[in-house]
Design a protein around this nucleic acid. Structure first.
Length: 146
DNA sequence: GGTGAGCGA
């Protein structure tokens, strides 16, 4: 075992003067290792503050604004219900918005419909984020709000 | 739409 002998010799030599500089560097390196533990929880805080406006996702592509309205009207006065559709294709994007008259109704509607089935799909209801201020009526140019 | 996470004119 020439290797082991050499290692012992090296260790012995080191023990005379403590850690070799190389060993010190290694120790330093590993003790300072940036442990990015997966405990860095991927926090996804409540998407938005409670409001009368709800964001509904997971919709069936065939679900329409009317269907949304009828379904959510069971839990309060729906002021507005809209399924977002692609401007050019006209097809549903699979999510929409429901606005209640009061926050209380919105909350009950959220809790009642979140995780429920609609047209065969499990839908998810959250409070909608405040929409980007829609410009008066001139150019509908794309705005990078986020 | 055969598209499947998302925040709308």
């Amino acid at each position: 075992m020439a290797m082991r002998a050499a290692a012992r010799a090296a260790l012995s030599a080191n023990s005379q003067i403590g850690m070799g500089s190389g060993m010190k560097a290694l120790y330093s390196t590993f003790s300072r290792f940036p442990f990015k533990l997966p405990e860095s929880k991927i926090e996804k805080p409540p998407p938005a503050d409670p409001s009368t406006n709800l964001f509904v996702s997971g919709l069936n592509k065939r679900t329409t604004s009317e269907g949304l309205h009828k379904e959510f009207a069971k839990f309060g006065e729906v002021v507005e219900a809209k399924v977002v559709t692609d401007r050019v294709s006209g097809f549903s994007k699979g999510f929409g918005f429901v606005k209640y008259a009061t926050i209380e109704e919105a909350t009950s509607g959220l809790k009642a419909m979140d995780g429920e089935f609609l047209e065969g799909w499990v839908i998810f209801v959250e409070y909608a984020r405040p929409r980007s201020p829609l410009p008066p009526l001139n150019n509908a140019a794309p705005q990078r709000q986020w």
